[in-house]
Design a binder for these strands. Structure first.
Lengths: 339, 339
DNA sequence: GTGAAAGCGCTAACAC
DNA sequence: GTGTTAGCGCTTTCAC
């Protein structure tokens, strides 16, 4: 069916060694021989068997990208950037989804199913830093958006505490006083929501505003639907309604926006909204969504750079890196100052 | 560094054969031996080398998913479903992005870089069906959303002509007469836009409405920005403004919606909008977006089923399949009848 | 400049 | 029930 080096060699009347040289472009091959071999290669439509090459090389040129979900805009955009950056480095990306399942995260980290990838980029939800680094034994691992790890893995993320602080401060400066936070996730272990909550509270305290439990809302997941539910719950609560919302993801913010419209609230007049992630949808929402924009391009780029360093110099003794990627507050229509 | 079958065998005092049997669960192994081997496996943290296994097996358990872009909501959702469906079949997915580049599509199809995947699911933009099937030589290929191929590959898609016809008819029945079409793509070869245009015109003609060139707008890409530009162009044109828009993707529709708002048009009163794809954003847009909803779940499922059949029974002589996946018109706020 | 052959780690056919 | 070994297709050392 498919031809091997041996077949090409036979057809060209040379040894496999020579064919291999021609294919890889390495070694010295007489021009006449080269042409004859090339003709045989074309004639048979030779394609190298990568499994064989990988076995031989001890490397596969594959890296794993493990995300909770691929369908959400944030992870879709991130995955796209990572695949692109990987392609530039001649790596191919294998994608796995965990849906936040701890067992799945563990399994993919410790390579129970076998070693195939040269390295792993993982965005954990269910596993805390300790567990992540315990299980990461088989290949270099880079963490995306985790809490700083104590252990073995590099980590690339924005400064969530600072970013959340800035977002909240922006709302305070726009004259808002009852600022709700949507996106607390008691069941996740990766710490992102905790960090954003910390930043939010810090900003409130600094401004002398009260931290009100009733304004801090948990969500099950991070999608529009969850943001809508949380917003509805806020508006239905007996306490005074909020005049602003800081949502921990843009999707949550868009869900909140949706409910605000349904309830006849004007945004930003009655309710200001700030999100996090800077997904494309927010730029076209009605009104356009103010958001914390992580530099995703750099997130992807630095993650790959880390991985490359670990893969190509496995034992260079560099301690785990904790790389902070820049972000900026993208002020748009949803958070204009209170008239 | 990492241990091999041989190391485990040495530690357990058995042969590699026995260890292999224990690992794979096949063959008969005495319980006492099994336990001893298992202990050695755990002690060494043995992980099978998949490159070796793949070489031996002649299969990799990898399938390739080739999409133009991963960051757009439609392909993100689709990729997520395909990765999920693949996981259920114990396949792992390799993702490549072509950004609609013909050379990239060609290269990935014909496996120039080597054979690694057991099969390929591709959503081509730049390549027409002839070229696709010419280059698909190395592994079974399933086409997503292409024009019906004449050649070697299976194809899974919705009935684009019918769906576009229904969408347009829906607008006609809502009392609209000047219905614009946004999303023509003269530079793409996959035929999707052509089919939707055909359905759109068919519906207009059936209703006795005029087909007006000025209302058929080309776009460069299929994103919100392109929809916004096309909408702006429509509104700036000297001819009478449209009272409805059928956009060939939801992203285009959302861009059009955005511009409509900016220009002070009321949707749906002044302008009705219908999209295509049923991406999540549309359900939370303001107003919610009417759209043609392809059954993406089934799209993914059937594509994988096709691939499985071809991979496991390569020579069963079944001619290329052309599978039509159902869709439905999801009527929401953006296309309410003209008062 | 080219050929012969070892060996990457695994599975399974063949022995016993 | 377990050991021995050939061989998957490739790269590369060693020889000429």
């Amino acid at each position: 069916m498919s031809s091997r080096l041996k077949d090409v060699a036979a057809l060209a009347g040379v040894s496999v060694r020579t064919v291999s040289n021609v294919v890889s472009g390495s070694g010295h091959v007489a021009e006449a021989t080269r042409q004859r071999v090339q003709q045989a290669l074309d004639e048979l439509g030779y394609r190298p068997n990568l499994a064989a090459r990988n076995l031989r090389a001890g490397r596969t040129g594959l890296i794993g990208l493990v995300v909770p979900e691929l369908y959400s805009p944030y992870f879709g955009e991130l995955a796209s950037l990572i695949v692109e950056a990987a392609q530039q480095r001649s790596w191919t990306v294998i994608i796995d989804q965990t849906f936040g399942d701890a067992e799945a995260e563990r399994r993919l980290l410790d390579g129970t199913q076998g070693r195939l990838v040269d390295g792993l980029i993982i965005s954990p939800w269910a596993l805390g830093p300790e567990e992540v680094t315990t299980h990461a034994r088989n290949a270099p691992v880079v963490l995306l958006g985790e809490r700083p790890p104590r252990g073995l893995a590099d980590r690339v993320a924005v400064d969530n505490v600072l970013a959340a602080d800035e977002a909240t401060t922006h709302l305070l400066e726009a004259g808002r006083r009852r600022i709700a936070a949507i996106g607390i996730q008691p069941h996740l272990r990766n710490g992102t929501a905790d960090q954003r909550l910390t930043g939010y509270r810090t900003a409130l305290r600094r401004a002398g505003a009260a931290v009100d439990d009733a304004l801090e809302r948990p969500v099950r997941e991070l999608h529009r639907e969850d943001g809508a539910q949380a917003m509805a719950a806020l508006l239905d609560a007996p306490s005074a309604a909020p005049d602003a919302v800081f949502a921990f993801t843009d999707e949550l913010a868009l869900g909140a926006l949706h409910v605000a419209h349904e309830r006849g609230l004007r945004v930003p007049e009655d309710l200001a909204v700030v999100g996090f992630d800077d997904i494309e949808d927010g730029r076209y929402a009605q009104p356009t969504l103010t958001t914390v924009a992580p530099d995703k391009q750099q997130l992807a780029e630095r993650a790959l750079q880390c991985l490359a360093d670990r893969i190509y110099s496995p034992d260079n003794g560099v301690p785990p890196l904790d790389i902070v990627v820049p972000h900026r507050l993208e002020v748009r229509g949803s958070s204009a100052p209170k008239a």
